[in-house]
Amino acid sequence: MNFQLFLQNLANGISLGSLYALIAIGYTMVYGILRFINFAHGEIIMLATYFVYFGILIFSMPWWLAFIFSIILTSLLGMGIEKVAYKPLRDSPRISILISAIGVSFLIQNLSLVIFGGRPKAFCQPSIFTKMVTFGNVKITSITFITPIIAGILLYFVTYLVNNTKTGMAMRATAKDFDTAKLMGIDIDKIISLTFTLGSALAAVGGIMWGLRYPQIHPFIGTMPGLKCFIAAVVGGIGNIPGAVLGGFMLGIMEIMLVAFLPGLTGYRDAFAFVLLIIILLVRPTGILGEKIAEKV
């Protein structure tokens, strides 16, 4: 493989990685606050792509408006799922809420299958995202470099929100200790709701970009990216936002490079993520940037 090809694959890996990072943040933020894996996150991604599809098909929206429509609808949906399926279980054992999440995931998947049908639909392909762009002698489609730019802006925004605003402080406080957060006058229901809304909005953006990359949508497209981003979050250290970003990029770049360097293993592309998960769980169960364990009380 020559250097030019390597750069091309690297660009592709960074692009896929930034997409994973966006989605992984949703897992890690929810885990950080409620200590469970929101298995319905993948279905949120899937629905975001359908919202775009129907926005264009039924309401004849221009693509950009359909994107915004989808992001808003998906955020509200994420918030709604929390209210209906997770909030009533907040004082139950953690396993109940986890099972509830799996239930929501199956429900949405199968409901979508009934309503949308199983036949794949074509996702919109605005020409602005499909143009070929040349940097030096590296040729890539524009979505490949637009994805990391948008992801970068959003990641910066989320990190800023969490680290530098009062709301972010309240989020970190709630993640640590519900009761004491309440004693500060924090309305933890609002904070948790906001976390789901934010995570779902990022997942919607991730889903839309996924659709632009792989423009065929069906009710099960959320499963694989959902699982992979969950793995990315675990690899980076679940509960840790920079960790989710790191895990996302690692997974994306390694996946693309695996296919590029060892074309014989292309069929194992999805399995690779799980191998990585197993290795991390064996070597460093808390993930690369996992939570510090020793803490003074």
């Binding site: 004491t180 500060m184 006058g185 510090k292």
Partner: peptide
């Protein structure tokens, strides 16, 4: 808490991974 009652909980329960200043700001959250 907004009515003017506050409690220092047993075992202090400061937020360990927030800075001292951030902990104080949270005290004035509302």
């Amino acid at each position: 808490v907004r009515q003017g009652i506050t409690m220092v909980p047993e075992g202090r329960r400061v937020f360990p991974d927030l800075t001292v200043r951030e902990n104080l700001i949270l005290g004035s959250y509302f």
